[in-house]
Design a binder for these strands. Structure first.
Lengths: 197, 197
DNA sequence: CTGGAAGCTGAACTCCGGTTCCGCTTGCAT
DNA sequence: ATGCAAGCGGAACCGGAGTTCAGCTTCCAG
């Protein structure tokens, strides 16, 4: 299948334009990963080796650029989930594996922490499609893990979302005893079924 | 004892000044609870029925005002903990009760959600003293609950902090299935000792 | 009562960062 | 080859929000 994401621009771009678009996205990704929402357009343009005007030719507004990157990241999360669904093995551990992998991905991206940690609600709202996709995949993982018997029976896809958002919020905090990996493991433990009733 | 908090201004303020200071704090509290970090000084001044200059006479900078309010809120959290430590009853439930009460407090205050949810790290950093106090009280609650046997033995005070930050981060999100009370209960469940080994 | 220090006001200032826009460059269809 | 639409650069623009300050008002000690 050709890349038919609603996000991509309608008609064929000129070759150099496509190249620039990609460089901008890359630069933006780096800048936002580093500085979060506070990254500046001028900086992004500089990193991309491009004028500010060019950035605005490709993305009507800073917010649009932010949203596009959040979308992409969500697709990465979804890819991880899809890969995991191919694997053999204990479905609970597979679920936990995806959570660990996605958390690690978010850990390197301040913008994503902002989006998930509560600021930049707008970013999430506009990535609704991608979120839904991820939720659907999560549901599959949950179903399997529930059948496996090691997952608490009342856990819903949105629960995973909330917990992951929570973990991301601790990524932004530095402090003694503040460690997102620890937080993540606590969250995963919260999902376990009590060792029989 | 006289109010000897390092935060209060050194020498006796003129009567009207003290009154104004209080009105500003009140107005700021309301504005920040509503708009979070984005609340504007002009708006705060207007709500307080005071000129902007007056706000700046009492707080050198917007950040200082923010920090002061975060500190106060932490003291409220600590008060809740202190009260709880007076109570009789299952120490685990007492701990859970404080968590519920403090979460509910934070739920009505967007600025606090920003501070705890990952933005405004700076606010937390400057409320270090108040945090330490809260941590110490938390430790007492944990010790008792651990002795009671219903608390997972490896839970540390900072864990509670992280979990609470996480819960606050979901407060900022609206969405189907996103419900901070649910998140909080999951967090509390994560603390429970497995029903024997 | 009264002098003067403390406090107040709010228009004006400053800074900063997103956005615009116009003249120039470049890819590509013919 | 070549014309021209698509794309690019980046200085300039603009609005918004924190902060300042010069003159006026109010409290209160003596």
């Amino acid at each position: 299948m050709t890349t038919t994401t609603t996000t991509e621009p309608e008609r064929q771009l000129r070759a150099d334009a496509r190249r620039n678009r990609e460089r901008i996205l890359e630069a933006a990704s780096a800048a936002l990963a580093e500085c979060g929402v506070d990254a500046q357009i001028d900086d992004i343009a500089r990193r991309a080796g491009v004028g500010v005007g060019t950035v605005y030719r490709h993305f009507p507004t800073k917010e649009a650029l932010l949203v596009e990157l959040v979308r992409r990241k969500f697709r990465v999360f979804a890819d991880h989930a899809r890969e995991a669904l191919e694997q053999e093995g204990d479905p609970f551990e597979i679920l936990a594996g995806v959570m660990r992998r996605n958390a690690a991905t978010a850990a390197g991206d301040v913008a994503m922490q902002h989006a998930l940690g509560g600021v930049g609600e707008y970013m999430l709202v506009q990535a609704e499609t991608e979120q839904r996709e991820l939720l659907a995949l999560t549901e599959q993982m949950l179903d399997r893990a529930r059948d496996g018997g090691r997952l608490r029976r009342d856990i819903q896809p949105a629960d995973i979302g909330m917990l992951m958002c929570g973990v991301c919020s601790t990524m932004a905090h530095a402090g003694p005893g503040f460690d997102w990996k620890r937080h993540l493991e606590l969250a995963i433990d919260a999902l376990r079924a009590a060792p029989q009733g």
